[in-house]
Every structure is written in C-alpha cells, then in structure tokens.
Design a protein around this nucleic acid. Structure first.
Length: 196
DNA sequence: TGAACGATTTCCT
DNA sequence: GGAAATCGTTCAA
C-alpha cells in the first residue's frame, strides 16, 4: 500500500519502525531498482543534537523543514550520498534515515552501480550503499515520494520483530536508542561506534 | 578567509 | 584494527 499523507505527518520515532519492510522503488532513465528497507534511524530536528537540523534551518537542511513525504538527500564525507524520508508536521525538521535494505528488483542495475564484484547481500547494506544502489544523488533532494521518481510502498503488515539500539556514527546524541532494524535480518549494516 | 569535521566506505596491514 | 579518500557545511577569527 502506498502510505496516505498522514502516515508521514507523525514524529520520526513513530514513522521509523513503520518503514521497516517498506519497499522503495527508484525509476530512473537507467532503469528500475527496488529495495526492501531493513534498517532505519530517526532524527528529531530541533531537540536532537545528532540531527543536521539541530542548529536551525540552513541551505543544506531546508528540505527537512519542508512538507513530510519528501526525500532529504545529503552529501557526506566528500563522496557519499545518503537519503532520508522527511516526516512530522511541516516546519518540524524530523526525518528518518534509510540505513540498509535488500535489493528485490533490478539487481543487475544495482550491481552495475555498486560494482560487479559486490555481493548481493552488500548491495544496499549501509546508508550510502543503499542510496548508490538506487541511483539516488543530490538531484533527487526534495523529491516527492507521492509523485516523483522515488516511490514507497508499505508492507501489508508491519515487521514481525523490531530491534532498537544506538544510532551509528554520531559524536553527539549517540546514546539515544533511535535506530531500528528487522530482528535477525541479514541485510543490516554493521554497527560501528562513533569515532572520536 | 581559513580550519575542522562529518548520519561512510573501502582497502591495507 | 587502522587509515585514506574527498569536499561541502559549519564555526571561529
């Protein structure tokens, strides 16, 4: 089922676990790739020291403050793209980072983007890997999930078992258990404690 | 105007 | 287990 607009108009902490099992499909000139989401992280704008929006609105994070149901794509470490689903009421800057998933359609294209030697299990296991497998870059920043080249489909029933834990790679706010993943899934990123 | 660092990945030892 | 790659954003001066 395609989620109703109201699905996204909730706090990130409520939307995040509901996204587990959802299928994200990118339809671009190169072809179509679909990924079943197995790991996410919640970011709660103004109150969250780990969020890009913690210090207020800026050119980069403007999309987070916009209407929910859109995609926030950012450039990281000078070489990687990562994608979020904007949620919460407009102006709240809440978002959910898609950290990992399983490629269930368009495996050939995903492998072409990621590299022929990459194992199928590793095609979208990690936030930057997931974005690369789907062909997501900055040009899709702000794209609307309802009408754009990216579409989201919710599972008939929510994930059976959900695990929670600390978020990955943050120097601040890392103690909050705002990471969610499908228990026992092999398509989950490897945890690494924040550097520093 | 400059310096530090990051919601990461990959390759090396 | 450790470090490099690489650049836009942010913060300090």
């Amino acid at each position: 089922m395609t989620p109703a607009p109201a699905f996204f108009t909730r706090p990130a902490l409520e939307v995040a676990p509901d996204l587990l099992g959802a299928v994200l499909t990118s339809t671009l000139p190169a072809g179509r790739v679909a990924v079943r989401v197995s790991e996410v992280e919640a970011y709660d704008g103004a109150n969250d020291p780990g969020s890009h929006a913690f210090r207020g609105r800026s050119t980069r994070n403007a999309v987070m403050f916009g209407p929910p149901g859109h995609v926030y794509v950012y450039f990281s470490y000078g070489m990687h793209w990562c994608m979020n689903v904007v949620c919460g009421a407009e102006g709240t800057a809440a978002a959910v980072l898609l950290r990992a998933g399983e490629v269930i359609d368009g495996v050939d294209l995903a492998q072409q983007r990621r590299g022929q030697c990459v194992a199928e299990r590793d095609l979208a296991r990690g936030p930057a890997r997931l974005a690369q497998a789907l062909g997501v870059t900055g040009v899709l920043n702000g794209a609307d999930l309802a009408t754009g080249r990216l579409r989201l489909r919710l599972p008939a029933t929510s994930a059976d078992h959900v695990s929670t834990g600390p978020r990955v790679g943050l120097s601040r706010g890392a103690e909050l258990p705002w990471r969610f993943w499908v228990s026992g899934s092999g398509f989950v990123s490897a945890y690494r404690a924040a550097a520093r």
